[in-house]
Amino acid sequence: MVQENAGLGAAWFHTGRARPDAACRLYVFHHAGGSAATYARWAQMLPDDVEVAAVQLPGRQNRRSTPAFTDLDTLVEAVYEALEGDLDGRRFAFFGHSMGALIAYRLTLALQKDGAPAPALLAVSGWEGSAHRPSPVPVAQLSDEEFLARVAEFGGLPPEVTGNRELLDLVLPALRADFTVVNGYTDDRARVDCPVVAYGGASDPLLGAGAMGAWADRADAFQGLNELPGGHFYLYEHAMAVAADLARRLRRSAAGPRRG
């Protein structure tokens, strides 16, 4: 059972710049501890024929009063229900970074299993299942210091957060919940039948150079790996390049059948 009425699309999907005439709706999924604000500039970076819908998971920002999910299957079920109420007949696509890539991947598989309309493109960044190494110690059992050390392996938090106990106390509950979601995942190497493109940082310490190319083993239509300079959060510096590449691929897929 989901934690709230998933049909409340305004809560789940933040559209910074509504483009009802856009041919495609791009749903973007944030990383662990992140929020829809991660993609605040994406609407400006993508052409007018793409409408950006940033997914806002519970437990953060305007949804802080709603408990964050700690189980991946339940989370995907909730996003699925929200998505069903949001699709309007236009083509749609998914982009997710890190935990967001995991959610977008499992959501695509859920749609596929039900025979529902599939995304025109699944774009994954900074997460690849075969490289997933869950912590042997449950996240809930880690002290704040131990947990933050674990977070540091992913690139850490901004200094203005870690140096401010008040801010840290606001961020930690959702961050712990998100890490619990990821830590509980068991990879089954399931394949998706929609087109897939992968992005990654060339010096991502969690994956290693070229690791995102392994998505070829999960996709019937793999469009390749676009690797950019940087670590796990390379996306902060190269969002414009990724958005431009996505726009090009979405235009190429526009000749395909209408989805939704």
Rank of each mutant, 00 (worst) to 15 (best):
A198I: 12
S130P: 07
F29Y: 12
L75V: 09
A32P: 04
Y236V: 14
A211Q: 08
L72P: 00
G210I: 10
V161R: 07
A22I: 11
R106E: 15
R91H: 11
Y105H: 09
R19W: 04
E51T: 08
D73W: 03
D73R: 07
G100R: 14
D21P: 06
H238I: 02
G16Q: 09
H238V: 02
P257S: 14
S98F: 05
A177L: 02
G9K: 03
S65I: 13
G200N: 05
Q112G: 08
D88Q: 13
G34R: 12
A211Y: 00
L75K: 05
A110C: 00
E81H: 10
R63F: 10
A53W: 03
L168A: 03
G210L: 09
D49R: 11
V55S: 14
N164G: 01
G100P: 11
A174H: 12
A174I: 07
D245Y: 10
Q61W: 13
A221K: 10
E166V: 01
L109F: 05
L72H: 06
Q56H: 07
V52M: 01
A140R: 08
L142F: 03
A82D: 03
N5L: 06
T70R: 15
G230A: 02
V242M: 02
R133A: 08
G16E: 11
S130D: 08
G129Y: 02
H238F: 07
S135Q: 09
P136D: 06
Q56R: 13
L87N: 03
A68M: 07
V50R: 13
F179R: 05
S65T: 15
L8G: 10
R165M: 05
G213T: 12
L148W: 01
G33H: 12
W215Q: 02
A219S: 15
L122F: 07
Q56D: 08
D188E: 06
E166W: 03
T180W: 00
N164P: 01
S125R: 01
A244V: 12
A68K: 12
P119F: 03
C24V: 13
Q56K: 08
L167T: 04
H232Y: 05
M99R: 11
T108H: 04
P229I: 05
A123R: 04
L72W: 04
L121C: 07
G7S: 10
N226Y: 14
R191M: 15
H238Y: 08
R258D: 05
V76T: 11
Q223T: 00
G184S: 07
E51S: 10
V76Y: 02
A116T: 01
S98Q: 12
R133Q: 14
A254P: 04
E146S: 01
L170Q: 10
V50N: 11
R248T: 15
G224E: 06
T162S: 13
T38P: 00
H232M: 02
R64Q: 14
G231N: 01
F29D: 11
P138E: 01
P47V: 10
P134S: 07
